[in-house]
Simulated assay, not measured.
Amino acid sequence: MKILVAVDGTKYSREAVLWAVKIAKKEKDAKIIALYVERQLSREDYLLSDDEIDLKIEKKANDIFVKSFEDIDIEGVEVERIVERGSPASKILDVSDREDVDLIVVGNRSRSGISNFFLGSVSDKVFTYSVRPVLVVKTREKEPEIETVAIT
């Protein structure tokens, strides 16, 4: 089983990682693909060379991967990290197709104001346009307990 989990350094994506790991541990030969998408460059980034931008994004992504999986027991679970640039929802869908994943796990992060009205959230877009099963995870006070998983 291949599980794609989107990470962005928020508590919502950390909760998604917790669920992805719990599900992966219940499945034989499960693999987690942790995806970080750099949404946009800052003004200062345009003064950097392409190599400097790549290094900056790689460092930021590495920090987010470490933070996302910190203190989570991933023993016995293969984890692959992928970094992309662009629209998070589009990249999540692209990578899920390219990697032929069985499940997409994303955090439910509520955005407020006019941008959410016109743009929608990443989790909404992934849920709406994915042809694969999508688990949208809300944050909880305690760690989730999963007894059995069946995905067909």
Rank of each mutant, 00 (worst) to 15 (best):
A20M: 09
K22M: 09
K22I: 09
I23K: 04
K25V: 14
K26C: 00
K26I: 07
K26Q: 09
E27M: 12
K28A: 10
D29N: 10
D29L: 14
D29S: 09
K31E: 15
I32H: 01
I32Q: 00
I33S: 01
I33C: 02
L35K: 11
L35E: 08
Y36K: 00
R39D: 15
Q40L: 13
L41G: 02
S42A: 13
R43G: 06
D45Y: 14
Y46E: 11
Y46P: 05
L47H: 11
L48A: 04
L48F: 14
L48W: 09
L48Q: 01
D51L: 03
E52R: 07
I53W: 03
D54C: 04
K56Y: 09
K59S: 14
K59P: 08
K59Y: 06
N62Q: 12
N62R: 07
D63H: 04
K67Y: 11
K67I: 07
S68H: 07
E70V: 05
E70T: 06
I72K: 02
I72L: 10
I72A: 06
I74A: 06
G76R: 02
V77F: 01
V79Q: 06
E80H: 01
I82C: 01
V83F: 08
V83G: 03
E84N: 00
E84R: 10
R85N: 04
R85I: 14
P88T: 04
A89K: 02
K91M: 10
K91R: 11
I92F: 08
V95S: 05
D97N: 10
E99A: 04
D102F: 00
I104Q: 00
V105L: 02
G107F: 12
R109K: 12
S110N: 13
S112M: 08
S112I: 10
G113R: 12
I114M: 13
S115V: 15
S115E: 14
F117E: 06
F118Q: 03
F118G: 02
L119V: 13
S121P: 10
S121R: 08
S123D: 14
D124K: 12
D124W: 00
F127R: 07
F127E: 13
T128N: 02
Y129H: 14
S130F: 14
S130Q: 15
V131R: 07
V131H: 10
P133F: 04
V136A: 03
V136Q: 01
V137D: 09
K138D: 14
R140A: 10
R140S: 13
